[in-house]
């Protein structure tokens, strides 16, 4: 097994709201290994995005990490000062977001925004930073890089802006790239271009990628391992092949079955009943049991732990643990 770049253990995040404290991430643990692409999948309210914000140390002011540790190569991140976190964010971990327009500064040129981190974190002078920035833009498939350097974000298309974001995120050779729904706002042909770019990036460098997405198609295209989240918890962890071939948790199965398939048309789609519970009204026991086809009185009482089914394939379900589950 490759060396761990990031180790998250028992992470708990809560938000202060008008209705009191609300926990949105409840004891999440996973590891990102060197050179691997880990996908975190879940629907809205699963806590996947909050997890990534917590890792980057950029939770909104009313949110806080209450428990757990985030180890970046033996360095604990949860107790870092703002200043030290900023160093880690530029040099070691970087992030790309769903909507690059909100992440880029609208009043500075692309060139200025690309040069800045290079001069700050890599200690290059302006000239060096400029040529390095152009190099970076070319590497993400922007052919007229010199021209783009002088443009402002609003003058670029969505796909172009996402490329610029990726170039910026990679400019200081991070060890870990966190990509939060990087292709969700893009058209499908542009999405294919960006996914290919990320795949090539992994081939050419040792950068680990953690991709957060709701789209199982994107997961199948790009991930090595997958973490499935539901209502603030991890419900299943597996390699991408195992997850799609033999999903264990009823929620994962439901998600896979409810996707309309492009090559396989069925009359009626499988659908998971009900909706994701609100963090204020969490069900007791297994959080999925009110929507689960196998949920019974036992599931309402026992909160299952994440157990190994086979090797590294983990699932949080008492039925799976007891092998009662009929496929």
């Amino acid at each position: 097994m490759q060396e761990a770049v990031l180790k998250v253990d028992g992470l708990k995040v809560r938000f202060k709201t008008e209705d009191g404290y609300v926990s949105t991430v409840n004891g999440v643990s996973f590891t990102v290994h060197e050179g691997e692409t880990l996908a975190i999948v879940g629907e809205s309210g699963s806590g996947k995005s909050v997890t990534s914000l917590a890792l980057m140390g950029i939770l909104p002011p009313n949110g806080e990490v209450v428990e757990g540790s985030i180890l970046y190569r033996d360095r604990e991140l949860t107790n870092l000062s703002k200043k030290d976190y900023r160093k880690i964010r530029g040099n070691d971990i970087s992030m790309i977001f769903q909507e690059p327009m909100t992440a880029l500064n609208p009043v500075f040129t692309i060139g200025f925004q690309l040069r800045e981190p290079l001069m700050l974190h890599a200690a290059l002078n302006k000239q060096q930073a400029h040529s390095r920035a152009i190099e970076m833009l070319r590497s993400v498939g922007i052919s007229d890089a010199e021209k783009v350097m002088g443009r402002f974000p609003h003058q670029l298309s969505g796909g172009m802006r996402q490329r610029v974001m990726i170039a910026m995120a990679l400019s200081c050779n991070p060890k870990l790239l966190i990509a939060d729904e990087p292709t969700t706002a893009l058209d499908v042909t542009i999405q294919a271009q960006i996914l290919t770019l990320l795949r090539n990036l992994k081939r050419q460098s040792s950068t680990s990628i953690m991709i957060i997405t709701h789209d199982l198609g994107v997961v199948a295209e790009i991930a090595d391992r997958v973490v499935v989240m539901y209502a603030g918890e991890i419900v299943e962890v597996a390699t991408v092949d195992e997850l799609f071939e033999s999903p264990q948790h009823p929620y994962t199965k439901g998600l896979l079955n409810s996707m309309p398939k492009i090559h396989d048309v069925v009359d009626e789609l499988y659908s998971i009943e009900g909706t994701v519970p609100s963090p204020l009204e969490m069900p007791t026991g297994c959080k999925f049991h009110p929507r689960c086809p196998l949920g019974d009185s036992e599931c309402a009482k026992i909160h299952p732990s994440l157990e190994s089914k086979e090797g590294d394939h983990l699932a949080r379900c008492i039925k799976v643990a007891k092998k009662e589950l009929v496929v």
């Binding site: 042909t189 789209d215 199948a220 991930a223 092949d241 896979l256 398939k261 492009i262």
Partner: peptide, 10 residues
């Protein structure tokens, strides 16, 4: 360009 939800068809 549509991603296929099956890693074997990658």
């Amino acid at each position: 360009a549509v991603p296929i939800p099956d890693p074997k068809l990658r």
